[in-house]
């Protein structure tokens, strides 16, 4: 029971950090709009506080992840880190008034089903300390992210 609570709290914090990072990226990109392949755009990106919120969220995310992975099995951990697609969708609807269209809801459902399959596939498939390559995306997305 003690472990269950530890995981529940830990994974919730992880998803919240992931969500914060993506929301901050969106805000940073919007402030720097339009995107250009030049130095001026990079200066605009780093000229607003949101990019730093993203970095802080990313660091928090990293330490939460490393703490959890010390004990949590890789399969469920893998799944939870990618379930942020759902939380990001809900926050986007709320903060950016993005429509929750049927293709998005259906697409998200199918993606989550796939992630759950992959999570079960990872469980027990790897010895400890040998996480699969894709266990953690670069930007807390799918990685990509």
């Amino acid at each position: 029971m003690k472990h269950a609570r530890f995981y529940a709290i830990g994974f919730t914090i992880l998803v919240l950090f992931d969500t914060l990072v993506q929301l901050s990226f969106k805000y940073a990109g919007d402030h720097a709009f339009p995107p250009e392949a030049n130095w001026a755009w990079i200066v605009r990106v780093f000229g607003h506080p949101w990019i730093y919120v993203a970095v802080i969220g990313y660091v928090g995310n990293f330490f939460t992840w490393m703490t959890l992975l010390k004990h949590a099995p890789i399969g469920p951990a893998f799944a939870v880190t990618h379930l942020e697609v759902v939380s990001v969708m809900l926050f986007s609807a709320w903060l950016f008034n993005e429509p929750l269209t049927w293709p998005r809801v259906l697409g998200a459902t199918v993606i989550v089903a796939g992630i759950i399959c992959l999570a079960f596939a990872e469980t027990g498939a790897h010895p400890e300390h040998d996480a699969p390559t894709e266990a953690k995306g670069a930007l807390g997305v799918a990685a990509g992210d």
Partner: peptide, 27 residues
């Protein structure tokens, strides 16, 4: 940087869903 540029051009909800392809390709 590419991800920030990408997200500024699409809805965030759509962006993270499309980004899920990274899991598959890396795997």
């Amino acid at each position: 940087l590419v991800w920030i540029a990408f997200l500024s051009l699409v809805d965030l909800s759509e962006g993270v869903l499309l980004g899920s392809i990274n899991i598959v390709v890396v795997m």
